[in-house]
Design a protein around this nucleic acid. Structure first.
Lengths: 242, 242
DNA sequence: CGACTTCATGTCATGAAGACGATTAGCTAG
DNA sequence: CTAGCTAATCGTCTTCATGACATGAAGTCG
């Protein structure tokens, strides 16, 4: 540790954008236009600029590659991946970010250079769809992080639009955790937590059923008492006539 | 994002080693022997080698700079800091690590090049002692992480030696959180949690009082139900004769 | 105006957790 | 040997969050 090694190392950012579409946890991917891994799916991301901090770089790449709104988006740093040969081009380390988006009608594959599109996380974890580089590992970390954070933070609201119903919020937990939650107990718990939700007073009238009260995100960032994941029925298994 | 920017960027690792000494949360620091910030206290760390992963680099720097055992040490990645001018020498981003050590009689300032020594975290957070670079910010993140992880993981045992007493474990929570915890309820809760602790059958006889049973770390990594921090008396305030 | 659908609220039993009293197991001093 | 000290461990009571489950409320549609 004497003088800086400004030798050939490059730094990138990669962003795992999670959302819920069609009652499924999905991740935003782009099709690679260049080698290596040309034509394969990968996380949006790219090289950090010489005078740029990591988080702005993540937001910038997101906008450039997927035309996704960089502003209202929840974004947090996930972890840095620095395994020596993770990029065949040379020494490239990446700072991975986790972003959470509501189910916006993203111009997937529309506006920009690369064809951006949503992909169910399950199709990646099962190995049905392959990702470039070590991006599968990054997605796994991101999903783990999101699952944990639902427990003790109010992160779930980041999956919802600015105004949402209790049922929408509950579905976030159900989809991300893969469990089913009793609507009544959930309602009680969430309304008891301070500043988790803020009633708008409005109601949303659907085609059918009683109108649902509308809520906005509250000021609270942490959730106390936490949602206890382990207490819910552990993923309804495919009924094997026991 | 066309071809890699292998321009002048360097990558370092920095390690925040936390321990409990004298009933205080302390962090391991080294005195810088070179510019910039020569003579100032800083986190142990250094440049990552061309063909080295980040975590091994963290372990290596720890051994080189502080002669601390790299093996039995708990180590996890914390976060990457990439603010453009955080290092006056140029573009240097650092991958920060959090390590937890039992109160080993470390050869502080002994064996090696730099004078390594323990410093109470409180003296850093209060601003009484200054750190080089943005290392104060890194320490703050590390302490936050450690405090959170005590809640829902068994990380507390990493502060203890291989064999320890219930009281030692409880002190970890008390010192790191800055609260006082009822010994009886703590005992009940911890022994009820599966695989948190494993009784050795031995007892430790002190100068006074009933001998304490000795425990070893159990296999569990996560702690359920979690320790609920917010439920404890919120830091005994200086009795305002109210 | 009933049938249907979805949201909202209530009750009850269980279990975890905080407060705190009581007992146990070692030592030491008389 | 016994009283007394200290710290660890065990037990009880009460409160409160939570899971299970039933019922009422507010809309649309025929």
């Amino acid at each position: 540790m004497t003088t800086p090694h400004f030798s050939g190392v490059a730094v990138t950012v990669d962003v795992v954008v999670l959302t819920i579409r069609d009652d499924e946890l999905q991740v935003l991917l782009v099709e690679r236009g260049i080698e290596p891994f040309r034509g394969m799916l990968a996380l949006p991301g790219g090289f950090i600029l010489p005078d740029e901090d990591a988080e702005p770089a993540a937001r910038r790449e997101l906008v450039e590659e997927t035309a996704l709104d960089g502003e209202g988006l929840y974004l947090e740093q996930l972890r840095t991946f620095a395994t020596p040969h993770r990029d065949p081009r040379g020494r490239v380390i990446t700072v991975a970010y986790l972003a959470i988006a509501p189910d916006l009608p993203v111009p997937a594959g529309g506006t920009d250079a690369h064809a951006a599109r949503w992909q169910p996380v399950s199709s990646l974890l099962s190995g049905a769809v392959a990702l470039a580089f070590d991006h599968l590992e990054i997605v796994e970390h991101a999903v783990d992080r999101a699952r944990s954070k639902l427990e003790y933070t109010t992160l779930a609201t980041a999956f919802c639009p600015a105004v949402f119903t209790m049922t929408e919020l509950r579905r976030v937990y159900e989809v991300v955790w893969g469990v089913s939650i009793d609507a009544r107990n959930f309602h009680r718990k969430v309304t008891n937590a301070d500043d988790f939700l803020e009633p708008t007073g409005e109601r949303r009238v659907l085609e059918t059923g009683r109108p649902a009260a509308l809520y906005r995100r509250g000021a609270a960032r942490s959730l106390f008492p936490p949602m206890l994941r382990a207490a819910f029925p552990p993923v309804p298994a495919a009924d094997p006539r026991s």
